Amino acid sequence: MSQLLPPNSTTFERNVTEVAAQNCALPVEIKSLASIDEAPDSFLSFLAWQYSVDSWDTNWQPSLQRQLIKKSFRQHQIKGTRTAVREVLAQFGYQCIFQEWFETNPVGTPGTFTLELELNGLELTEATYAEVNRLVKDAKPASRHLTNLVINVQPVCIPRVAVGTHGAETVTIYVE
C-alpha cells in the first residue's frame, strides 16, 4: 500500500496507510456480502434492509431469513392483494381464507374483509397472534379493514393403539 504514496510523504502518512491497510482486511470476500446465499448470518439484517423486507426478526432461523430476503421482490409485486396476505402467512406455516365484504352473505360493510386462519397444528400464543395481526396489516390492501379474524386450531393428535394378549395354562402339581 505504501507504494502508492508519493516519494515526499511523511512518516505520519506512511503509518496511517499501514494501519488503514490492516483495518481493511475483511474475514470474508466483499462480493459474498451481496449474495443472499453466501453472506454471513450476522450480515443478513443488512441485506433485509437493502431488499426492503417488511417482516423481520433477528431471532428467526438464518434459513428463514434468507428465504424472506429472496421472496421480498415478489412480496412487493403483489403487496396489497389477497394473494400477498395468503403468501406472507404461508411462509410461517399458516393457511387462510380471505373473504371480502362483497363475497359474504349477507353483504358486509364496504371496504372490509374477514380472515379465517388455519394454524395447521402450530401452537397459538399471544406472540403468535400479535405476529399474525402485524403480517396481515403489512400485506393487506390499504383500502380494506379487517373486521373478523377466525383462528382455527386443529390439535395434532398422534393416535396410540395398544394391543395386549394374555394366555395362561393352569398346572396342578400333586405331592404324594
Rank of each mutant, 00 (worst) to 15 (best):
M1F: 08
M1V: 13
M1C: 05
M1L: 12
L4T: 12
L5G: 05
N8I: 05
N8C: 12
T11S: 14
T11I: 15
T11M: 12
E13N: 09
N15F: 05
V16C: 11
V16D: 13
V16T: 02
T17R: 12
E18W: 00
V19H: 06
V19W: 06
A20V: 14
A21I: 12
N23W: 10
C24T: 13
A25V: 15
L26I: 07
L26W: 06
L26H: 00
P27V: 05
P27W: 00
P27H: 13
V28Q: 08
V28W: 14
E29C: 13
L33A: 01
S35R: 10
D37K: 07
E38W: 12
D41G: 08
S42A: 01
F43Y: 15
F43D: 02
S45E: 11
S45A: 10
L47P: 09
L47I: 09
A48N: 01
A48H: 02
W49S: 13
W49G: 11
D54V: 13
S55Y: 10
W56P: 12
W56E: 02
W56L: 04
D57V: 03
T58F: 00
N59S: 15
N59A: 14
W60D: 01
S63D: 14
S63C: 00
L64P: 01
Q67A: 15
I69E: 09
K70Q: 09
F73R: 10
R74C: 07
R74Q: 10
Q75Y: 14
Q77D: 04
K79W: 11
G80I: 07
T81E: 13
T81W: 13
R82K: 13
T83W: 05
V85C: 04
R86G: 07
R86M: 14
L89T: 05
L89S: 06
F92C: 03
F92Q: 06
F92E: 02
Y94F: 15
Q95E: 14
Q95N: 14
Q99Y: 00
E100T: 05
E103N: 09
T104C: 04
T104I: 12
N105Q: 10
P106I: 08
V107P: 05
V107D: 08
G108W: 07
P110G: 00
P110Q: 05
G111N: 03
G111M: 10
F113G: 03
F113H: 12
T114A: 00
L117C: 00
L117S: 03
L119K: 05
L119V: 02
L119T: 15
N120V: 02
N120Q: 09
L122I: 03
E123L: 12
L124Y: 03
E126F: 08
E126M: 02
A127D: 07
E131R: 11
V132C: 01
V132I: 15
R134P: 03
L135G: 11
K137M: 06
K137Y: 14
D138P: 01
A139L: 02
A139E: 00
K140R: 03
P141M: 09
A142E: 11
S143C: 04
S143H: 01
R144K: 11
R144M: 07
L146N: 01
N148G: 08
L149P: 06
I151F: 00
Q154R: 13
C157A: 11
P159A: 14
R160F: 08
A162E: 15
V163M: 04
G167N: 03
A168P: 12
T170C: 09
V171F: 06
V171I: 01
V171Q: 06
T172S: 11
I173F: 09
I173T: 13
Y174V: 09
